[in-house]
Nucleic acid binder design. Sequence first.
DNA 1: GAGCACTGC
Length: 709
Amino acid sequence: MDSKYAVLGKENNKKNSNGIKVKRIKLCVENPSKLNGNHVAIQQVADQRDIKETFVEDLRETRKSLPVYAVRNRLLEEIKKNNTMILIGETGSGKTTQVPQLIHEQRLEGSGSIAVTQPRRVAAITLAMRVAAEMNTEIGSIVGYCVRFEDVTSVRTKVKYLTDGMMLREAVADPLLKRYSFIILDEAHERTVNTDVLFGIVKLAQKERNEKKLLPLKVIIMSATMDVDSFKNYYDECPVIYLEGRAHPVTIYHTKMKHEDYQYAALCTIFQLHTTSPANHDFLVFLTGQEEIETLMSNIKQIAKESSGPLIRVCPLYAGLPAAKQLQVWKKTPPGMRKIVLATNIAEASVTIPQIKCVIDTGFVKERTWCTSTGAERLRVGPCSQAAAWQRAGRAGRTARGAAYRLYTETDFGARKPHNVPEIVRCPLASTILLLIASGFEPLTFPLIDPPPEESVKASLLLLKELGAIENEANPKLTVLGKKMTAFPIDPKYAKILLSAPEFDCLDEALSLVAVLSSENVFHMPIHKREEALKVKQKFVSTLGDHITLLNVFKAFCKAPLKKQWCKENYLNHKNLSYAFDVRQQLLAICQRLNMTVTSCGAALDQLLKCLLSGLFTNCAWLRSVVGGARYATGSGAAAGLHPAGVLHSLRPAPPALLYTELLHTRRPYLVTVSVIQPQWLHQVAPDYARRCRATRTCPESIFKPTDT
DNA sequence: GAGCACTGC
């Protein structure tokens, strides 16, 4: 196989192998009811994630072996000296667990506390547990975490791990973040919308606290390799400190020739390596989506029957896969059997699979982009960035030396963009802008490292105005309604639906529906059992459309006594439905705090659909043609068909007017999650918007006819 | 005729 690949060595640091003792430790909460927050669900989380009992190496020894430990004194000096610094360290440097402890050991936080933000909740929880164990303290006391649905902190908490979304929520109540003396923004290289906004919030808070002679705020930006120059520039040339990693060396191979078909190239490479590598070398293949993974999986199984080499176990891994099936990935294979994991970029950062010796990187990724003028989102397969490729390669060096096979040439690699495009420049911004306004910031001048396109900001401000959240776009001030909308941790359109629901006597149903819409797809359609899954789905289907169908599913789920079993029988995703259940609880609590009356519309489902329209009025589509399948035009003038997974796809005759949740361009533009509406409703529910549509001729004149049926 | 990944008082 060597002939096919050119070697580009990337030697990292020496392996660190000291005799590590293993002991079992137990994590517990001393008295959950004493802690603040509405639900302390440590037990529940532990059960869910199997981290109630964790194997942890001899903690003290491990700490000392971390690269960050060796430079701790120098690091502390820098932390004392600078108000802002950037800390670059590869996986395994120990920065995220050790730096907060170093600060706390010296009591540098004084009367304030130390916040460490994470893009993912699981990371925030496990890091807090890990650090609490290292400090030999109960989780929720000195060390705690705060994520959606769970606040495991107390007045004594000095080191707090939280999601960046949670930190943003705190900034609404207190833009100066006065309770913290240190804010550590971790995983900065991921450039999520929330982290990007936090960069600005801490920068402004730091400045203002300084001017007002309040407790100073120290900021530490932590990251793996990243675009240091733009960060340094943004933070007024603050110092940058580099930490050694502790990953094992990974040898990188590029192909010498360009491949036309990366899926075929992946298949060839897998079997080339399979026949030459020892059986205990597990493979990780990066692909772009579920369909690709399933196709490659059946191809591998087919070829494996006639191939020499060890036995193979193929494990798919993508976010939509039910949790029970994801677990296969972590199950050890018997001796003499090779594990081949076929994953989307979920395996790039969110999930770590041990024992991977060999990474096969197709070099492609599925990316979501947003069109500001039509509101359409597009899923497009394209080349991944250099940073993503390094991240993927690094997955082969977690436990021992490994290799990464890139299915593209070195020239191709060099021509790629060095970093991922920050999310904030390519996603809808209404909820972010609403949050900024609620925190007292000026959305048009708020300092961002990479400002989003102006038309994107303007489109979001227009939407907020039409939803009634702000008075006008030029001088965005929250209305009474807008203020209430900020209380909900959901898309402003959905918040509007809930806030209008009492008017339509359907808050009970609206809560359930918004909760389900805020979650991922609840239907699970395995490729081989599609017929059966579709048959089972029929019992939930409403001819009014997908929304009522989803409501039927959710209601049945709530009533089912054995939920996991019930979901399995009905081809539904238990994880996503449970999530929706939790979201509903949370939204209900907020509604009750706002003194909203929860009533049910019963069989009058028209009421519920009108209510949906009060938030989603910009998402109307009108039938334009029925030749070769129904074609619709949206209020913004985009043309789209019905998504084949929806219940209205096969309904005849095609409804003249629809309400859609999402306009998504995959192979073609599709309206996803749609319901039938009466054309006149738009004028009744959103008269201003309807008039604007009439002026731009994007809706039919029939919506202004006074009759209603 | 078919959906990348995260997240939220």
